[in-house]
């Protein structure tokens, strides 16, 4: 039962992720991305990481992608030109390299035995997550606030129109 569910969601994630890349209209790409995020959230649920799953849905599917959609609709982006990304000599190099990478990935994954981590909380409740964030991972957590600061500073500066 569990593996059936896993493969269903995994297929959903992979196919929608491919569709994100291959759709010609940016709005379609975003909608497929919503589905990808949904599939990922389901995978988190199967890992018993309920809180992460909820956050994944709320933040990514709920907030960020809706913002993406707004921007795309406001900018009124047209269907992108066929030749924009998908031409040039580099594509002939990209294909064999990707194949080599996939073959390598396959051989590696086939012989892997993930032992997982028992130390970390897999129950996914907020209490254990918060406990980890404020003890073991306190410093990365604090540094992330500076990453956010840099991002806010950047968006303000790069997008503000009339600067005094």
């Amino acid at each position: 039962m569990e593996s059936v569910l896993f493969y269903t969601f995994a297929t959903l994630v992979v196919t929608t992720a491919l569709l994100v890349i291959f759709s010609n209209h940016p709005a379609y790409s975003v909608l497929y991305l919503v589905l990808t995020m949904f599939g990922l959230a389901s995978l988190y649920v199967m890992l018993h990481a309920y809180f992460v799953a909820a956050i994944q849905l709320m933040v990514y599917a709920g907030a960020i992608l809706v913002l993406f959609l707004f921007v795309i609709m406001l900018l009124n982006l047209e269907r992108e030109g066929e030749e924009s990304f998908r031409s040039g000599p580099s594509r002939w190099l990209a294909l064999p390299l990707t194949l080599v990478f996939l073959v390598e990935l396959y051989t590696v994954v086939m012989q892997i035995h993930i032992k997982g981590s028992k130390g970390l909380s897999v129950e996914g409740n907020t209490e254990s997550l918060g406990h980890l964030l404020f003890t073991q991972h306190l410093l990365p957590f604090e540094i992330i606030s500076f990453v956010l600061l840099a991002a806010i500073l950047g968006t303000t500066i790069l997008s503000k129109r009339n600067w005094k």
Binding site: P140, V147, A151
Partner: peptide, 11 residues
Amino acid sequence: LLFVSLELITV
């Protein structure tokens, strides 16, 4: 922490 620091630099 390595990844977060790298992101701070990159952003």
